[in-house]
Amino acid sequence: MQYKLVINGKTLKGETTTKAVDAETAEKAFKQYANDNGVDGVWTYDDATKTFTVTE
């Protein structure tokens, strides 16, 4: 399945996608991506759209 990440950071904004077997695996990949880019915020997930959002 394909999952999307929407980033609403202080210095980084945008979107990225990943393919993963489940939401938990996608979340780990997205959190690593956010961490690598210095984004630390509040996470939400919408199962209907398979979209994670992180807001600083």
Rank of each mutant, 00 (worst) to 15 (best):
A48Q: 10
V42M: 09
V6E: 04
F52G: 00
K10F: 12
A48K: 11
T25I: 06
D46M: 04
Q32E: 09
V54F: 03
Q32Y: 05
I7H: 03
V54N: 01
K10C: 12
F30D: 00
T17V: 10
T53R: 05
N8A: 09
T16L: 14
A26Q: 01
T16W: 15
T51I: 06
I7W: 09
A29K: 10
T11A: 10
L5D: 00
A29D: 07
T55L: 05
G41C: 02
D22E: 04
V6R: 07
I7Q: 02
K31C: 05
N35M: 15
E24H: 12
N8W: 13
T17D: 05
E24I: 12
T51Q: 04
T17A: 07
W43P: 00
G9Y: 07
D22Y: 04
K19G: 06
Q2S: 10
T11S: 11
N37E: 07
N37S: 08
K4E: 03
T17S: 10
D36M: 11
K10I: 14
D46R: 03
E56P: 09
A29L: 14
D40S: 13
T55A: 05
D47K: 10
T25M: 12
D47C: 06
T55K: 05
V54A: 03
K10H: 12
A26H: 00
F52L: 01
T44A: 09
Y33H: 05
K4V: 12
Q2C: 14
N37H: 15
A48Y: 09
E27P: 00
L5T: 01
N35S: 14
A23N: 07
E24K: 12
E15R: 07
Q32D: 07
V6S: 04
G41D: 01
K50W: 06
T17M: 11
E27T: 04
K4L: 09
T51R: 03
V42Y: 09
T53E: 05
A34W: 03
Y45D: 00
G14K: 13
K4N: 08
A23H: 09
I7P: 01
T17G: 05
K13N: 09
E56W: 11
A26P: 01
E56F: 07
M1Y: 14
T55D: 07
G9H: 08
K50Y: 11
A23C: 12
E27L: 15
A23K: 15
D22A: 04
K31L: 08
Y3W: 07
D40N: 14
Y3G: 01
F30H: 02
F52I: 02
D47S: 12
W43K: 00
K28W: 09
V42T: 11
Q2P: 07
Q2N: 12
E27K: 12
L5H: 01
V54D: 00
A48L: 11
T16C: 13
E56Y: 09
T44I: 08
K31A: 05
D22H: 04
T51G: 02
I7S: 02
V6Q: 06
E27V: 07
K19M: 15
Y3M: 02
E27H: 11
V42R: 07
Q32P: 02
T18V: 15
V39L: 10
K19L: 15
G38F: 07
L5I: 03
K31Y: 05
K4I: 12
K28H: 09
W43T: 01
V54W: 02
T11N: 12
F52R: 00
K50F: 10
L5S: 01
D47W: 08
